[in-house]
Every structure is written in structure tokens, then in C-alpha cells.
Amino acid sequence: MRDEKNAAVLLRIQSLLRDLGRERSQLLPALWRVFDEYRYLGPEMIEAVSRTMNIPYAEVYGVASFYALFDNAEGHRPIYVCTDVMCALAGSEELLKASEDFQRGTTVSVKGAPCLGHCDAAPALFDGRATIRRATKEALAAAIRGEDHA
């Protein structure tokens, strides 16, 4: 079972990376393509990238683990709530607290994040693709529900 799954991941990743250069400098774009597909960079993805790009596993792992946006658990979609200074002043802690209820029973994982660069419209959320400015509890709940409808 495990081997079969890994073989499927390898095939999928080889096709995702087909038109990408094999040089080391394409590693970050490669990791993004894989992450956008799986929202998760587990050992089987790292192994597949390593084999496809011909870069040692430890090197791929070292790079992938360096970046906060690649840090996500299998089967979950991350939503980031900015908890930095300006958003904290605008109530982001309450948003984070409310999210505990909203996300129960969903596959979303809501995380605190450093400044998202939207302090003029605090509090800010990032759903992995788009930013939600002047976020409310309703907006957060909708972003979380969006996942279940996907």
C-alpha cells in the first residue's frame, strides 16, 4: 500500500515538474508546484522531488523545512490569521479564538502568522491564495467553509 502510494506520488510529481528545468535553482519553484498540489510536503513528496530533480533528499528536506508556508500537516488546508502588532490591536486574537469553533470537524487548520503586509486593513487573513482585509469572524467562518465546499 505504502509503496503504491509513493509510486503514485512520484509519477504525479514527475509530471508536475516535467517542463521545469532540472537545475538546483528551480528547487523552490518545484517545491511550490508540489505544495500547491498537495498542500503538504511529506517524506514521500520530498523523496519524489529529490529523485526527479536529482538533488539529495537531505538537501531538498533542508530547503523545504526552512520556509514557514511549506509547514503544513497532511490533509489540511491552512488559513493564516495575522497576530502581529497591528492586527492584534484590531482584534486578531479573538478571531483566532473563534476559529477553534469554526474549524471543528473541517479539514482547515487556522494558524497565527507574522505581519501579512496589510496592516492598513487590520486584521488580515491569508487563505493560501488570497488575502482577506478587514477580516471579521463571519469572513473567517466563510473562508473555512469554502474548504468544505471545494
Partner: peptide, 8 residues
């Protein structure tokens, strides 16, 4: 274009 991945 290069996309960063969450590292100040």
C-alpha cells in the same frame, strides 16, 4: 518571477 515561501 520567484515566489518566496514565508521567511522574513
Amino acid at each position: 518571477i520567484r515566489r518566496g515561501a514565508g521567511a522574513y
